[in-house]
Write a protein that binds this DNA or RNA. Sequence first.
DNA 1: GCGCAAACGTACCGTACGGTACGGTACTTG
DNA 2: CAAGTACCGTACCGTACGGTACGTTTGCGC
Lengths: 206, 206
Amino acid sequence: MSAPATDSTAYSPRQNDVLDSALRLLVEGGEKALTTAGLARAANCSKESLYKWFGDRDGLLSAVIEFQARKVRVPAEAEGLLNAAELRQRLEEFARELLAVLASDASLALNRLAIGQASGEGARLGRLLQERGRRGIGRRIEALLEAARDAGLLAFDEAGEAYATLYGLIVTDQHLRWLLGEKPDAASFGPRAEKAVAAFLRLHGI
Amino acid sequence: MSAPATDSTAYSPRQNDVLDSALRLLVEGGEKALTTAGLARAANCSKESLYKWFGDRDGLLSAVIEFQARKVRVPAEAEGLLNAAELRQRLEEFARELLAVLASDASLALNRLAIGQASGEGARLGRLLQERGRRGIGRRIEALLEAARDAGLLAFDEAGEAYATLYGLIVTDQHLRWLLGEKPDAASFGPRAEKAVAAFLRLHGI
DNA sequence: GCGCAAACGTACCGTACGGTACGGTACTTG
DNA sequence: CAAGTACCGTACCGTACGGTACGTTTGCGC
């Protein structure tokens, strides 16, 4: 859909390679590992090029976040559900995906980066991450919830609030624990997703 | 022999003053603002004393976390509830307190610090924060939940799981949003607490 | 083949930080 | 009062980073 001609974020293949190296450094060693000299060495480019392309270190960090957000872009859901079993299945799938995304190395690294920057600074990266990442997912699932309500399968006042409840039931404090260094256990995603959706349906199902 | 032993309460009043200054610096400017020279200036002490007391910068960071955890220590609940209305009130109070703690400057600063350190390092500070902070609150509220179950007011299989559900309903993704820089709105804590507890009771209440 | 722009590699600069060393000072202890 | 201890303030060292400058190389249009 969106032509790659969106000039604001038009990065050449070479620049995308560099951003890929930057993300890898970030995942492996955190913000401290993402130095201009280190990135230049890892990506076989010159520091001068980095400053030419991204302005300064902050621009580089923002570019990495946008780079990753662009990769995660999920295609819109096919809009053809309707019975209760299908809704449950959709929600469980969403829950598993959400847990997998939040537990991924890249997501954790970028969230850690943005959270580290949020102190003292104006939370630029935090807003960026919020806007590019969670917001998209939220809009998508809220649309699903509203469709289900129109079909008489769910009851709630406000989609945003219902989504917040669903999110809380799925994620609880796992995300924070992962951010603090706990290792994710992918095998637990499935059961957790099922339980969370069951609780959600008990709260908002018809 | 390196660090003066993480022996907890072995800090003098002078050292506690210094840790207080350190926490203030951390709250105001994040990890970058907590430099040895800056702390020495802010606390009117010498850098040499800092290294003598805390070993190195990491020891200082750990000491700040323990220092704050010791201050937050909440007294055990009075164990004399029983009817459903009181349980609801207790849970709502807990929810409001939890939101207030998570939204506090000190908590956010320390969580940001530990999360920043969690990349690349072995998540020492993360485990420390988890152990000293959340764990204590969790044990306390789980005891309340089990007491309520014994009194026939709640139904659940495992207290840890029920607590996770309650936590998720209360906090949703607010904690992360705050960590990313969003400003907390204290006026929303009350309504949110009531709704979360209402949902929890609909799930687990008799 | 030629010229030109882009980008590479490296050397360099200023700064700021973690950590150490040292002289001076106040306060205790015999 | 003398010896000792704990601490302050400051100066210092090595290192590492962000950012800049420059000479060299690569690739593409003509």
